[in-house]
Simulated assay, not measured.
Amino acid sequence: MSIWTRIAEALSALAGGEPLSVVFDRLRGASAPEQSVGFTIAVLALGAKMAKADGTVTRDEVTAFRRIFTFPEGEEAHAARVFNLARQDVAGFDAYARKIARLFNPEGRRICADDHHVLVDILEALFQIAIADGSYHPGEDAFLRHVAEEFGLDEACFRIVRSRLVDGAPRDPYDVLGLPHGASKAEARRAWKQLVRDTHPDVMSARGVPPEALKLAERRLQLINEAWRQISAREAA
């Protein structure tokens, strides 16, 4: 059974008039396949909310979903329904973010970038949607910062994710690797190797990232490798 079939079943379970956000409550404590459903619905739903953060929904932002998710023939309607239900829901994006946080972080602990948590993956996917139209709007920055706070991600985590994905954002190679500026070359090498391992598709799948969303790791890996190249070049100079 494909993830999109499971999403269709989750949507069909909604009683008349129930908002999409109810799905997140029903998925709490669910097994791994249903957690994958939760991940995909979360990105689509928050993406729909964020698409209006800069005042307009562009074709590029819609296309970004197709870069993150692979829609089998005939399944696009399920994704479109999630997108439209989220846009129509009167609940604000902060309410969605809180429900998603309870789904993937029920203990409510603080999360940093080094945790490689599924909520960090969701934030990265949202960043990719935000920059899909070639710009990064202040409204999108405020939206994503608020989502990160609701997720329980610390400020450093938000800055690291932004630096990895947004062109023109302050990007320090030590930040990209999640290191303090005084870190040694050996520490940087260890951090780089760990991040490369953690970005492997098998590892991301184990964190609950569905196969449809593994494309979001490609740019992250490029920037991680570039950060290590810069640090090793500085140390060699």
Rank of each mutant, 00 (worst) to 15 (best):
T58V: 02
R59S: 11
R59H: 06
T63C: 07
A64P: 06
A64T: 06
F65C: 01
R67G: 14
I68C: 04
F71Y: 15
F71P: 05
F71D: 08
P72Y: 04
P72G: 07
E73G: 13
E75W: 06
A77I: 08
H78W: 10
H78G: 05
A79Q: 05
A79M: 05
A79L: 03
A80Y: 00
V82H: 05
F83L: 08
L85D: 06
L85Q: 07
R87S: 14
D89A: 14
D89W: 07
V90T: 15
G92E: 14
G92Q: 12
F93I: 06
F93R: 10
F93N: 07
D94E: 15
D94C: 05
A95H: 11
A95N: 10
A97Y: 06
A97H: 07
R98T: 13
K99Q: 15
K99F: 02
I100F: 02
A101D: 07
R102F: 03
R102I: 00
R102T: 09
F104R: 08
N105W: 03
P106S: 04
P106V: 02
E107S: 15
G108P: 13
R110N: 02
C112L: 07
C112F: 06
A113K: 09
D114M: 11
D115Q: 04
D115G: 01
H116R: 12
H117T: 03
V120Q: 11
V120K: 08
D121G: 01
I122W: 03
E124A: 14
A125E: 08
F127R: 02
I129E: 00
A130L: 05
